[in-house]
Design a protein around this nucleic acid. Structure first.
Lengths: 218, 218
DNA sequence: TAAGTATTCAATATATCTATTGAATACTTG
DNA sequence: CAAGTATTCAATAGATATATTGAATACTTA
């Protein structure tokens, strides 16, 4: 194989992988799947895509070894192929958030609107948990909590937040988290609870980031 | 801003960045620029693109904050915007090389052809250099050597390899390196020198990978 | 200031990507 | 085995990306 042929083959292959990521809907799907496996129906519900379209996007991700499929009963369950990919994805997000001014601006506006600007980092959280005086709130749907959550967190899906007010402590600091930096569930929880006088902040990132961090520190 | 609007804005912005990377020619340009700044003419020479096309691709990279431009005399010099991007790029390459079977296959074929399969990792290199019994050969063009090279390396651009045979030691192990895992200059050097009886292997990666490694360990 | 330089622009044809539509498929379950 | 299910397929129109062509631009230098 000539030098140019080799280079072309390598760059073409690499570009094909990156192209599979270069679409906003597929990025959202990846965020969904990083919470645990989901059926096509599950993806459709949270993204608002049509079934055919969601299926097509999942196909693209599967053909590029980013997700894998498993059939059980009526449903086909998709999940990320491994944690190395998740770590890569998070690296991309982190770079984008720190280097693209426009993204930072949009994010800040969102957090201002929800008074959730004073976010807790994963470093902060570790210190706070050691000091015991904190309650961790997982506000994702319970299925996502069940397929994995931050150690010690309590599951209070957004839909059940109002019913469970009594359980929440007024003296402790509460930290709410959800799917990641782009997930707004924690923002909404902060808005609601802080208006009711609770001491609450959101986690800057989400469960998948915590999970990768655990893997990398052990 | 509504939840869906916010998500769309974030994923659109993120996808725009990734799209800028999702093209084989732009990936090759990025590899070029990770050796140091280059004029458009420099990029054209090594990629074989037309001037207009190279300029367009550089424009895309510039508009997405991946490269920056500087004018000096007749020439416009482009370079990567910072080392964080380079680290990200290498993370992507590393993931692709380990997870995409097809890429691994093409790479192995290339290295088999050049008898350069027994490559030295950066870890290996560190150990070998400590033991002193190794000569490091930078086979990139001298301009790239001058804008940065691995500590202790000797510059022998491919074009000058035959003239400088006498300088190379026969008793020491020689390790040749170039631009990165996709660069074939080191493969060619290994082929030529090993046929002449030198003890030579290639570095698995290249100068940019060494550079990022230095930054991260200090 | 005029000639000469590297680079960029603008227009365009072709190729690729995307969402939509309306089936078709592969299962499961009774 | 038939009815019912989630998912996938195939075709298509519209949007976006790409390489090519032939200037135009912004400089430099003599």
């Amino acid at each position: 194989m000539k030098s140019r042929e080799f280079k072309n083959a390598m760059y073409d292959g690499l570009a094909r992988l990156i192209k599979a990521l270069a679409n906003p809907n597929r990025l959202e799907i990846i965020e969904m799947l990083s919470q645990g496996e989901k059926s096509v129906e599950g993806v459709v519900k949270t993204t608002g895509l049509s079934f055919a379209n969601a299926s097509q996007h999942l196909q693209v991700l599967k053909n590029n070894n980013i997700v894998k499929a498993r059939k059980d009963g009526y449903y086909v369950y998709y999940s990320l192929v491994n944690d190395d990919f998740l770590a890569l994805y998070q690296h991309v997000i982190k770079y984008a958030m720190s280097e693209i001014a426009e993204l930072e601006k949009i994010m800040n506006r969102q957090r201002d609107d929800n008074k959730s600007n004073d976010a807790v980092s994963l470093d902060d959280l570790e210190i706070m948990v050691n000091g015991q005086n904190v309650m961790l709130l997982d506000v994702r749907p319970s299925s996502e909590y069940e397929s994995g959550h931050i150690t010690g967190a309590m599951s209070v899906p957004m839909g059940e937040l109002m019913e469970k007010l009594k359980v929440l402590p007024r003296e402790k600091e509460i930290v709410a988290y959800c799917r990641g930096p782009f997930c707004v569930l924690a923002d909404e929880a902060v808005k609601i609870l802080s208006e009711k006088g609770y001491k609450i902040r959101r986690l800057d990132e989400g469960y998948p980031e915590w999970k990768i961090r655990q893997l990398q520190t052990n």
